[in-house]
Design a protein around this nucleic acid. Structure first.
Lengths: 335, 335
DNA sequence: CAGGGATACGTAAACGTTTACGTTAGCAGC
DNA sequence: GCTGCTAACGTAAACGTTTACGTATCCCTG
């Protein structure tokens, strides 16, 4: 068996309280005993038992992260940011791949409660009232990353999707495009779906460009749906000269289909993506895209969570992070 | 405060032992009391405290996963497999992004020990003797996924890299190629580097094709290094008609550079990748590649770990999983 | 009807910490 | 020399479980 605090105390000739004090460096011992205890700890290779610690201190030094798909390029980047920030302040993270499954999410919530996590971060998944209620019952701080909850207040960190989408299509307009299509995300996604087409619409109308319904098509943010989206757009509106894609993956799909159809990018068709995931620099040609600071979003999320935990607050100010456009080679200037 | 087992016991008019028995359904109570207890649990919304449970049962129902980079496409796929298998048997997973940093890895090992994890999986990272020693001291089951330890025995699950690489280049040969280059991984990587070039070499010599050093170049499995690799190969051996890339990402890099240089794939140059990560179907053209069952590797890894935990064994038989070649569009048949 | 063996519980110790509280010794101040 | 204060500890309760052990009841058997 591993040595316990009692073993250390006995061997050092002090009480367990004293050992605890030096381990947590809390005052109440002389330099001499401190050294003695430290030496014994070294000798025995003593490591405190986090379960026992957590039991009495009511702090497990662990947070839970709910995430729809760990292996998604964009989600995993945020997870990385969370993990990184967590590590630097000595917290561990339990990952929960919800698969966008409500039942599974509820199971995870239960597990996280039982494991006494100090807080929960949910990444890029829609929040239902049921979850919200559970959060309340659990009495545990929650922060949302790349998502938000409209019917109540849960602190979140994200970029302003509508503004970002506005900016992306305005960029296309500035480059001289007027026949601008959009391959949007899910039609009923209130986070990354609707706001982005809203931004697109507003940019067009602000610049006096008519909005045509047949210029917009919907996908599910995935590669295949990007291919299908371009296919539909080509059919419905061949006059389009540029497309705003609501995700890099869909843009990559569009790129693939364009290649298959012999459509040259950016010469005949310009494309701008969204996210700036790893994929963006790997496409042919490299994808111009609207960058979300994914990793940073994760870090900020964890930082906010810790602030809530330390201050014992049920909420905290949300954070809107800045986006940028990274220009690569898929949009061409129309003269 | 959340209700404890004592609250339940009191309200149900039984002892804590009985409540514990019904919660863990262990024999020793009548159907009647069982119902009464269950009802009270429901009423109070009682959830057992996993810390207290773990403290006495010596099982935290949590495993740790050490992984060099969570956001890597191939690693995250394996992580997903692990998480999935873990969830189905009620284990949680703590992720540790080591960044391939030795010091950081050691820190994580310490944390995992303190958190009393039931086991550890290390994914796709080289194992040093120091780690091996730590594992021994920690007295905790360990399994390796997509890596192995040559100087001692730690159970692992992976594909046979050398055989797979052999197969991939033999595939190229079967397609009529003879001038076959390789963009390899790191020169000093004993897991995914050296074996794959060994397989490549053996395939060539088995088929009576001379091995030329200038046909092999080394990268780091990343996109950029794939570009650079092809650039060097083009310079050193322009007569090459096919290339075996030790990762999909490097293949994608090669694809990009080829496009930039006006080299048509697969018409003038065939390419085969390794991994079959998400990327493979997103390239232009879609990448023919050697598929590793990444997700399954993670699942098997966790299953093996649990077997060790349950049987209290320090080791177990390793597993070699089958690969397959998935044919897409980057290899052309030479007549 | 004595004896034995289930069955259905309850009691209390144990897990490894933290921490409130008590105790002792030393010393300053008067 | 007494009071009071502080530093440096030690004692023991508490955290929420599991589980070994004890006990009372009931029933069966001969």
């Amino acid at each position: 068996m591993s040595p316990t605090i009692r073993d250390v105390a006995q061997k050092a000739g002090v009480s367990v309280a004293t050992v605890s004090r030096v381990v947590n460096d809390r005052p109440g011992y002389s330099a001499e005993t401190r050294n003695k205890v430290l030496r014994v700890i070294e000798e025995l290779g003593y490591q405190p038992n986090a379960l026992a610690r957590g039991l009495v201190s009511k702090r497990s030094r662990t947070v839970g992260v709910l995430i729809p798909n760990i292996s998604s390029m964009v989600a995993s980047e945020m997870l990385k940011g969370i993990e990184d920030a967590a590590h630097t302040i000595g917290q561990s993270v339990i990952v929960c791949n919800t698969d966008n499954n409500g039942e599974r999410t509820l199971e995870y919530l239960q597990v996280l409660k039982e494991k006494q996590v100090d807080g929960i971060i949910v990444v890029s998944a829609p929040i239902t009232p049921l979850y919200h209620q559970k959060f309340g019952e659990m009495q545990v701080p929650v922060v949302l990353v790349s998502t938000r909850y409209h019917d109540g207040n849960l602190p979140f960190v994200k970029v302003d999707d509508e503004k970002a989408a506005y900016h992306a299509t305005a960029y296309l307009i500035k480059k001289g495009h007027e026949e601008i299509g959009m391959i949007a995300g899910s039609k009923d996604d209130r986070i990354a779906g609707i706001p982005r087409v809203e931004g697109y619409r507003k940019a067009l109308s602000d610049h006096g460009i008519p909005i045509r319904d047949q210029y917009i098509t919907y996908g599910n943010f995935g590669f295949q749906s990007g291919m299908a989206g371009l296919e539909r757009l080509l059919e419905a509106a061949p006059e389009i000269t540029a497309i705003f894609c609501a995700s890099d993956e869909m843009a990559a799909g569009a790129l693939s289909l364009a290649h298959r159809r012999g459509i040259e990018i950016p010469d005949r068709l310009s494309l701008i993506g969204y996210d700036d995931s790893q994929l963006a620099e790997m496409t042919i040609p490299p994808l111009t895209t609207l960058r979300q600071p994914l990793c940073q979003m994760g870090q900020e999320g964890l930082t906010m969570l810790m602030a809530m935990i330390e201050e014992g607050k049920r909420t905290i100010h949300s954070k809107i992070l800045p986006y940028t456009i990274v220009e690569r080679e898929t949009v061409r200037e129309l003269r």
